[in-house]
Design a protein around this nucleic acid. Structure first.
Lengths: 179, 179
DNA sequence: TTGACATTACCGTCCAGACGGTACAGTAAG
DNA sequence: CTTACTGTACCGTCTGGACGGTAATGTCAA
């Protein structure tokens, strides 16, 4: 036997995302996740003692990845709004998996939204602190929220050209920011 | 006996919204809805033969209300974007119940999003047809989508002043449209 | 006017299945 | 001896939905 140490956690988290995406958020059961992860149910519950902990793990994982992606650009001296824009842009363009698991989490307990909302609140606070025209900032920020939301709902209202126009406009606004 | 005819349907729909809001989207069970609506489970299933039909009823009801609210302003010669803006504004300001039931519906079957997405697609098409600067239109539209999404998640990232600034900006953009 | 019957609009109970979680014995690697 | 599991068996609960009633209302012929 080859116990893969604690990176079973990662496998389980990824399996959960896949199950939610393929079988629908309503079919995100522990059995299904365990099977997909190639782990016994006992093993799953060894890593995540409850379903709530597992969902929390999903939320944290995604928040960490998102933050890392933003700080990456920020470290390169990019304006924060531009970093945010770029991350949204990339995840919006790539066939990135829509976070179907989020719907499971919210259905289970709307409290899972709190860390996400806090994260978004902190991000907006950092943006506000960078100065520039408030109206410009807000409309660009909210438009990006709208884009992300569209992705979450797996919709594509905008044509590629339109998305390009929108992002160009947002980038122009971001360029007006002080770094 | 006083069978309240078909307006039991309405009562059930409203009860479902309340249950989802109060007990959480994960607790939206037929029993809970029936109890809240003051109807037996059998009675509920008489009006909505399956849970899916009930959720479909919720989607349709909301889409109808939304469309009515928009057309109301449109009939007064308002630019379409302004109507849309006004509806979002009002529902965003009022302590309007966040549509927690939507999460139940999506968890049950992501297909429930389709009529909603189609509706939004039609709305955007109508907006495009009105002319005006595409970048302006898109950024205002997406910002409103973002606002609506925030409401759905029951978050309030923006202060009242900020929301005012945002809406003023959006209205300015809408004013540039031909009627 | 009245009785017969059909329809409508519900009631209340029951059930099979799924789900989260527990318990526990075993096992292989370090 | 501990860590990191596997595998199976099981439990209590909840849920959607099927089903068999039943009272009020509507219809229509005699």
């Amino acid at each position: 036997m080859k116990p893969q140490k604690t990176n079973s956690r990662e496998r389980i988290l990824i399996a959960a995302e896949e199950v939610a995406r393929n079988a629908g958020p309503g079919s995100l059961s522990l059995d299904a996740i365990a099977q997909r992860a190639g782990v016994s149910k006992g093993g799953l519950l060894y890593n995540f003692p409850t379903k709530a902990k597992l969902l929390q793990g999903l939320v944290e994982k995604h928040l960490e990845e998102f933050e890392k992606a933003i700080d990456e650009g920020s470290a390169r001296g990019e304006p924060l709004l531009s970093s945010y824009l770029r991350v949204i842009e990339r995840s919006s363009a790539e066939g990135h998996p829509p976070a179907a698991w989020l719907f499971s989490a919210i259905a289970e307990d709307p409290g899972f939204l709190e860390p996400i909302n806090q994260f978004r609140g902190r991000l907006l606070a950092r943006l506000r602190a960078q100065g520039g025209d408030l109206g410009d900032l807000l409309i660009a920020f909210m438009a990006m929220e709208g884009l992300q939301c569209m992705k979450l709902f797996d919709t594509d209202l905008l044509s590629p050209q339109e998305r390009a126009v929108l992002l160009e406009r947002a980038h122009a606004i971001a360029a007006g920011q002080r770094v």
